[in-house]
């Protein structure tokens, strides 16, 4: 976009420092999911929103260079695999599917399996949700080239 037509300079300057903070808050929501409201699903949405905000303000092409669509759809599949994989891990350790108590073969009363099992499963949810949401957004936004201000 040329210098003359860029009258969104205030929007860009204000949004630029906000985007990394939004993404960082997403990870806070994920890793704090055990103690406070939130978890992988909300964190995935927040991280996806930070990328979508970037693409709304700086254009879809720079966003696709920063976070390629091939990466987002692999991320979605990887997240689902992580969730399913934790279940298979519990199976291999001799427990039931998704039985986190069996993960580390700890004595009864230990909570490490539950703690890390929940964290890993939520990480899978985060990857799957963030990747899926961004893939959907790219599928929609990739079909319109550039939006003029009058079009809104």
């Amino acid at each position: 976009m040329s210098q003359k037509t860029d009258h969104h300079v205030i929007l860009r300057i204000v949004a630029k420092p906000l985007i990394p903070i939004i993404a960082l808050f997403g990870f806070y929501v994920h890793f704090h999911g055990d103690y406070s409201p939130g978890g992988g699903f909300q964190a995935g949405c927040i991280i996806a929103v930070s990328v979508i905000l970037y693409s709304l303000i700086f254009g879809i092409a720079p966003a696709m260079r920063a976070v390629p669509p091939a990466f987002t759809r692999s991320l979605a599949a990887l997240g689902f695999l992580i969730f399913g994989g934790v279940g298979v891990w519990a199976l291999l350790m001799g427990g039931n599917y998704l039985d986190y108590d069996a993960l580390f073969n700890e004595p009864p009363g230990g909570h490490d399996g539950q703690h890390y099992g929940i964290l890993m499963v939520e990480l899978g949810v985060l990857f799957a949700v963030a990747g899926s949401m961004l893939s959907i957004f790219y599928a929609f936004a990739g079909r319109v080239t550039e939006i003029k201000d009058e079009d809104w």
Binding site: I60, M64, P69, A70, Y138, A139, F140, G142, R143
Partner: peptide, 8 residues
């Protein structure tokens, strides 16, 4: 709708 990058 397609992947997005190809239609773009």
């Amino acid at each position: 709708l397609g992947f997005g990058e190809r239609s773009l």
